[in-house]
Structures are given as C-alpha cells and as structure tokens.
C-alpha cells in the first residue's frame, strides 16, 4: 500500500527511458518511505529484469500471449489488474506514445489523477506535485494531483538513473494476469519508418530542418550534411505538416523530446513549442537568415545566412575537418 509503481514496456528493453523512470521512481519512493515496484508487461530480456531489480524492491513480470505486442485495451486492462491490488501512491510511465495513451485512462480506472510531460515530481504534504511546461513552454506550472494514485508520464530520458550501489536486488516475480482479447479493437498492421542508426530520442547529434527550407528537396541536402556529421535527422511541425518529411521526424511539444549533445536547427524559427522538444540539448545552434529569429535565444552560437549558400560548402568543410 502506498508504494510507487514504475511501468516498463518489455519491448523497449533497458533503455534510457526505463532507467529514467526507475530513477524518478526510486527517489519518489525514498521520499515517501515507500517501496518501489517495477512492473514489466510482455516477453522481456535479462538486461531489463536485472537492471530493474538492481534499483527496485520488487519486479513483477507479467507475460501473457496477449502482451506480446502492444494493444491499448489489453495493456490498460493488464496494468489495472496489477496495480489495483497494490493500491499504489504513484504510477510512473515514460513519455513514449503508448505510455501517454495509457496514463489518463489508467488514472481513471484506479480512481486517481494523471499529469504528463513531467520534468519533476515531488511530494508536498498529502499531494504529489508535478512540474511541467504549459502554454507551449512559455510558462512552467506545478500541478497538484488531488486524487491517489498519481499517474504521471515523465520526460524519463532526461532523468537521472538510480544508483544500485549498496542495495540488495529486489525480488523478481512472475505474475499471471487474467486477460481476455478485447472484442472491439484489433491491431491490423504496424509500420516502422526505418531510419538507419540510433533512435532520434537517443541521438547524440541532430540536424533538423524547418519551413524555411521551402520544400522536400533541400531535406536531401540536409541528409548529406547529417551523414557527414554522423547525425540523425529531425524536423519542425511545419515541415512535417507540409508533408516534406514523415511525421515521426517531428520534435517539440507534440513531437519527440530529444536531448542530443548537438542540435543544429536549419531554417527553423524556434517557436516555444519547438523549443519544448529540444530544451535538454547540450549545445543548440542554428542557421537562419533572420537574426531576430527566436531560435537564437537558445543557441550557444549561430549563423545568420541563407541556408542555400551554406549547406554545400559547410558539408565539404566538415568532411575535411574529419
């Protein structure tokens, strides 16, 4: 009772998100004097189970044929079945799309309150306080969750992992959940828009393009630059909405949250909603022909130029620099 549950999707494995969720969960459990209970849904691997056990008081692994692939209704039902008897104080999830999809409904079924895109979570009296950006990142709010449990999806990748040193690993239990196939919703097909290399969320260097590029063609040039830099490609909402690049490239408030060492924004104005997705980058830099573009307010250094004059020579120069 009153414990902290961290939900870890088995499919994602022991990634930065799982580590960040458990890190936040560990600190929250410690400040509540409560136990940290990791919950894994689906066929899992040793790395995830061992990683989770090292920082948790218990790890529940629910494997069931219906949990092999994500399904909104069955995953929700499984989480409710596991969480309800635990009567937790908090349930934490990562901010992947599936986690976001589940959180509010999970809160509703557990009689709790949800809040998301949290950059911080703390105990204040009898309530959980969640810190998050609002108004497209122009303001920061602390939201007090009135009901219990607090179900919170976190910007997990930006959160520190927990330190396993000096603690005995938590007990790993296999749990059986009673699940029936949902008669209403079925997953017809899944499509991966494959990109080479690491996921955007884990990329160390990102080259990103915006509406100022003027069309899909220049993105090919940007791709050459990105390849030279060993970078992943991303885009603003405006470039995605124009259909120049796939929707999965979008970063920002309602796109991916990235945290590379280097983010190069090309012909992106830097609207607050875009910044919300890149604020955790180490170094932000930009090429924009408008010196007053808001993006420069977030840059360590920047180049005021027409991108068309810059991209080709810049790539050559970088290739030479090696």
């Amino acid at each position: 009772m009153g414990d902290v549950v961290c939900y870890l999707p088995a499919k994602a494995g022991w990634d930065r998100s799982a580590q960040g969720v458990l890190g936040a969960g560990r600190r929250l459990a410690d400040s509540l004097g409560a136990k940290l209970r990791a919950v894994v849904l689906g066929p899992t691997d040793e790395a995830l189970v061992q990683g989770a056990a090292a920082v948790s008081d218990s790890v529940a692994v629910a494997d069931h044929p219906l949990l092999a692939e994500y399904h909104p209704e069955t995953f929700l039902a499984a989480l409710v079945a596991i969480c309800k008897p635990l009567a937790p104080r908090a349930v934490l999830l990562g901010n992947d799309t599936y986690g976001q999809e589940l959180a509010a409904r999970l809160a509703h079924r557990l009689g709790g309150s949800a809040a998301g895109d949290a950059v911080g979570i703390a105990v204040a009296g009898d309530k959980l306080h969640v810190t998050r950006g609002v108004y497209g990142g122009k303001a920061t709010a602390v939201i007090a969750l009135v009901r219990s449990p607090g179900v919170v999806w976190l910007r997990a990748r930006a959160m520190d992992p927990a330190d396993p040193a000096g603690r005995a690993p938590g007990e790993v239990q296999k749990v059986t959940v009673d699940l029936a196939a949902d008669p209403r919703v079925k997953v017809v097909s899944r499509h991966v828009e494959a990109k080479e290399g690491v996921k955007l969320e884990e990329a160390r260097v990102i080259v990103s393009g915006g509406r100022g590029l003027g069309g899909p063609e220049p993105f090919k040039q940007l791709q050459e630059l990105a390849t030279t830099m060993g970078a992943q490609m991303a885009a603003s909402r405006a470039a995605c909405d124009a259909g120049w690049v796939p929707a999965s490239w979008q970063v920002g408030q309602t796109g991916k949250k990235v945290a590379p060492e280097l983010y190069l924004a090309i012909a992106i104005s830097g609207a607050s909603q875009h910044i919300m997705g890149i604020a955790d980058s180490k170094v932000i830099t930009a090429i924009n022909r408008d010196p007053d573009a808001p993006i420069f307010k977030h840059c360590s250094f920047g180049l005021v130029e027409d991108y068309q004059k810059v991209i080709g020579p810049l790539r050559e120069k970088l290739a030479k620099n090696g």
Partner: peptide, 21 residues
C-alpha cells in the same frame, strides 16, 4: 471532486547569449 489543481505558475527565465559567427 477535483482531479488536479495548479499549485504554481511562473515564467521561466532562461536565455542563452548567442555568439553570432
């Protein structure tokens, strides 16, 4: 019954000094 409340609302002050090349 309430679901959640705003405990604080503020505008973050964070500006980087950009060095223009």
């Amino acid at each position: 019954a309430a679901y959640y409340e705003v405990a604080e609302l503020s505008i973050p002050r964070k500006e980087t000094q950009c060095e223009f090349i």
